[in-house]
Simulated scan of single mutants.
Amino acid sequence: MLTSGDRLVAPLGLTSARWHVLGTIGASERPQPVAWLARDMGANRQNVQRIVNDLEKEGLVAFAANPHHRRAQLVVLTERGRNTYDAAMHLQAPWASGLADGLEVSEIETTHHVMKALLCKLEGSEDVGEQA
């Protein structure tokens, strides 16, 4: 999946990891520091910091002052970052639809249930019924 995602967004100058970070920033209700973004992504803070720094150098994100913590700046999408993310999602929609071609809805639902069950087990939760 990551390799396919990398190929899909490479023309935009993105990787799957950069795309994921942009999406997490864009989906946040308000600007967040890197540590919070990493937590939301289930990722290592240092890795997310490195990606955010690269995105900032390319003008896709910017840092803003954090009124609650002087050193933990907030990360915000720039207009260029929003446009790049939107372009990635525009590429993703037909790609994702193509993956589902020939599959029955029941097969997709079963796969979803199995993936949720596995995720619950990996996260240590045994109550799969409520999660699925």
Rank of each mutant, 00 (worst) to 15 (best):
M1E: 11
M1N: 09
M1R: 07
L2M: 09
T3R: 12
S4K: 12
S4G: 12
G5N: 11
R7P: 01
R7A: 15
L8Q: 11
V9H: 08
P11F: 07
P11W: 08
L12R: 05
L12P: 12
G13V: 14
L14H: 08
A17L: 11
A17Q: 08
R18W: 01
W19A: 09
W19L: 06
W19V: 03
H20R: 09
V21G: 04
L22N: 06
L22R: 05
G23L: 03
T24N: 06
T24V: 12
G26H: 06
S28G: 11
S28H: 02
S28D: 09
E29Q: 13
E29S: 14
P31C: 04
P31M: 06
P31G: 06
P31K: 10
A35S: 02
W36Y: 07
A38Q: 11
A38N: 09
M41Q: 07
M41L: 12
A43H: 15
A43N: 12
N44P: 10
N44M: 12
R45P: 07
R45N: 11
R45W: 09
N47K: 15
N47V: 07
V48H: 10
Q49A: 13
R50A: 15
N53A: 15
N53R: 13
D54A: 15
E56H: 11
E56K: 10
K57S: 15
G59L: 09
G59F: 07
G59S: 09
V61A: 09
V61W: 02
A62S: 12
A62E: 12
A62T: 04
F63Q: 11
F63W: 04
N66T: 05
P67G: 08
P67R: 14
H69A: 13
R70E: 10
R71A: 06
R71T: 01
Q73P: 03
L74A: 03
V75W: 01
V76Y: 04
V76K: 13
L77D: 06
T78Q: 07
E79D: 05
E79Q: 04
R80N: 02
G81Y: 04
R82H: 01
R82P: 02
Y85I: 07
A87K: 06
A88L: 07
M89A: 08
H90E: 10
Q92R: 03
Q92S: 07
Q92Y: 04
Q92W: 03
A93F: 00
P94A: 00
P94V: 05
W95K: 05
A96K: 03
A96D: 04
A96N: 02
G98Y: 01
L99A: 00
L99V: 04
L103R: 10
L103E: 08
L103G: 01
E104F: 02
V105K: 04
S106V: 13
S106D: 10
E107A: 11
E107L: 02
E107D: 14
I108R: 03
E109T: 08
M115L: 14
M115D: 04
K116M: 15
A117R: 02
A117I: 00
L118M: 12
L118T: 06
L119C: 14
C120D: 01
K121F: 03
K121P: 01
G124R: 01
G124S: 02
S125C: 02
V128L: 00
E130Q: 06
Q131M: 11
Q131A: 13
A132Y: 01
A132S: 05
